[in-house]
């Protein structure tokens, strides 16, 4: 499996995801600078968290129009797996690879804490190592993670089984109290219709090692390596 991580000016989780991906892959993934448009053959492209272009204008808006994103879109259309985490999720929605938008958090504050998520489906390359309905713990760290889409889009997302993760309590109950940022339907992450592109606000790469407090996130990277190798 060949994997690359896109690096924008202002990305700051690029190294974190590289470390975790390397642990699953056995070698260092390729780091691609935002001006590069000449991508080699790839099985997985990761768009990492951070503040691409300073999050000026709107989170992810400028990165969505960068040269490298045109190439990412073309690859995604051909079926290359794309994983967008946090700012990466915002970029993928801005680029039109995923539906919906991420608005300011309900309380208008940045939130950094562990949350529980319910895995909605295990029938994807991203989640095959989990079980549908399983509760996992990932951290969130964002000020704009409040997922919103119009009623028709939400209906389509739900109908097509595009919801990847929902915020829930420790027992898996999807409740308002377990929703950290006001996301519609407690949605924490979504797929494209073909489930080859995943965007999520929580950071699986941050809890991928017991020393750091848990390893639920590692399963996602192991799943991808297993599926794509």
């Amino acid at each position: 499996m060949k994997a690359a991580i896109i690096v924008f000016p202002g990305s700051n989780c690029d190294r974190d995801v590289a470390v975790v991906l390397e642990a699953s892959l056995g070698y260092r993934p390729l780091m691609v600078w935002h001006r590069d448009t000449d991508l080699p053959d790839l099985d997985l492209i990761v768009v990492p968290g951070g503040f691409s272009y300073g999050d000026y204008l709107r989170c992810g808006a400028m990165a969505a129009h960068s040269p490298v994103l045109r190439e990412v879109k073309a690859r995604a259309e051909k079926g290359t797996r794309v994983l967008g985490i946090c700012n990466g999720f915002q970029i993928l929605t801005e680029a039109g690879l995923l539906p919906g938008v991420l608005m300011r958090n309900r309380d208008l504050r940045f939130i950094c804490r562990d949350v529980h998520l319910r895995v909605e489906t295990d029938a994807t390359d991203f989640t095959r190592g989990y079980q549908a309905g399983q509760v996992v713990r990932f951290p969130i760290a964002h000020a704009e993670g409040n997922f919103f889409a119009d009623a028709e889009t939400v209906k389509a997302i739900e109908g097509n089984g595009q919801v990847a993760f929902r915020y829930c309590d420790a027992d898996g109950a999807v409740t308002e109290a377990a929703n950290p940022n006001g996301s519609l339907g407690n949605i924490a992450g979504i797929y494209n219709p073909g489930r080859t592109v995943l965007g999520l606000m929580p950071h699986p790469e941050r809890l991928a090692e017991d020393l750091l407090g848990g390893s639920d996130g590692k399963t996602m990277f192991d799943s991808l390596v297993e599926a794509l190798s």
């Binding site: 700051n12 989780c13 190294r15 974190d16 470390v19 975790v20 968290g49 504050r109 940045f110 939130i111 950094c112 804490r113 951290p139 760290a141 950071h203 790469e205 941050r206 020393l211 750091l212 407090g213």
Partner: peptide, 24 residues
């Protein structure tokens, strides 16, 4: 401290709330 990203860089072993922060 929940308004501070205390985990970026992937080396925070002890998060805020203890006697001292511990970073690998």
């Amino acid at each position: 401290w929940e308004q501070y990203d205390h985990m970026v860089m992937g080396d925070t072993v002890q998060r805020p709330g203890g006697d001292a922060a511990v970073v690998r």
